[in-house]
């Protein structure tokens, strides 16, 4: 654990800013606890992914410029979303400040990979005495390799899993399908409502079947989708972003 002297910019996904501020607060507090100096540039809005994944990447110039200017000259950029991180890593560019955009692309980290790969966190002062199921969001997993993918013949690992295992009292539940997509998929969730909901219901059912009382993950968008399904079914099971759990002290 060595956060000292690092200056990190916090990138907060637009829907987290608006609907799940507690996730961004937990991310900020967690990083600060680990000794990192965090700044939140107020001019940021969105990574541009909602447009780009809908086929409108050509409209994302405005978002790209905002991100590039907001995070100029920072050591690292940390974001509590695998999906937004992946999008910026793969697609951020700037016509006015091309090298600044390059720098950000190479320096942006999803929260759990930052904790594991940069801060080398080995222990956490966190307490969460519950049975927790982990949802592996696809972009974080298959895009950023936050954990091994079941399709590949390769050694198993999980960065979110490693961190959750440091939380006192927390019991991880095994799932039948460890890395199946939940069906959120951005605009897919409304354009393909029937399949999206069915995928979400099936994912939630897997967690319930194994006795999870919380579903966590590194992407609030997937959790928002599953939360919508849980609430409609009046289930007592809740979703919590991984930052909230890791930041939960006794």
């Amino acid at each position: 654990m060595k956060g000292g002297n690092l200056k990190v910019g916090l990138f907060v996904p637009c829907y987290v800013d608006q609907f799940y501020p507690q996730v961004a607060i937990a991310t900020l507090q967690l990083l600060e606890k680990l000794g990192v100096e965090v700044v939140y540039p107020p001019t940021q809005t969105c990574c541009g992914q909602p447009m780009a994944n809908s086929g409108f990447a050509h409209l994302t110039g405005g978002c790209n410029e905002l991100v590039t200017r907001a995070f100029l000259g920072l050591d690292y950029i940390v974001c509590p979303s695998g999906s937004c991180t992946l999008h910026l890593k793969e697609h951020l560019h700037s016509d006015t400040l091309p090298s600044a955009a390059d720098h950000i692309r190479g320096r942006i980290y999803e929260l759990t990979e930052f904790l594991v790969d940069v801060l080398h966190v080995e222990k956490l002062d966190a307490y969460f005495p519950h049975k927790v199921g982990v949802h592996q969001s696809c972009h974080g997993q298959r895009g950023l390799h936050l954990s091994q993918m079941t399709e590949l013949v390769a050694p198993v690992f999980s960065k979110p899993g490693k961190l959750l295992n440091m939380v006192e009292g927390l019991e991880l539940v095994e799932l039948d399908r460890t890395d199946e997509c939940c069906g959120f998929g951005g605009t897919f969730c409304v354009a393909e409502e029937a399949v999206s909901v069915k995928m979400g219901k099936d994912r939630v059912a897997d967690h319930l079947k194994h006795g999870a009382t919380y579903i966590t993950g590194a992407d609030m968008s997937c959790l928002m989708h599953m939360e919508g399904i849980l609430r409609r079914a009046r289930s007592p099971v809740q979703v919590k972003h991984i930052a909230e759990i890791l930041n939960q002290a006794r």
Partner: peptide, 29 residues
């Protein structure tokens, strides 16, 4: 487009909406 709280909204057909918050993270910060 998907976050409109009515029956015509495909999100709401089979899923509840996230609870609106009083303060965005930007405001909290």
């Amino acid at each position: 487009p998907w976050l409109v709280n009515n029956r015509l909204n495909p999100w709401y057909k089979q899923r509840d909406m996230p609870t609106p918050t009083k303060q965005s993270f930007g405001e909290w910060y």
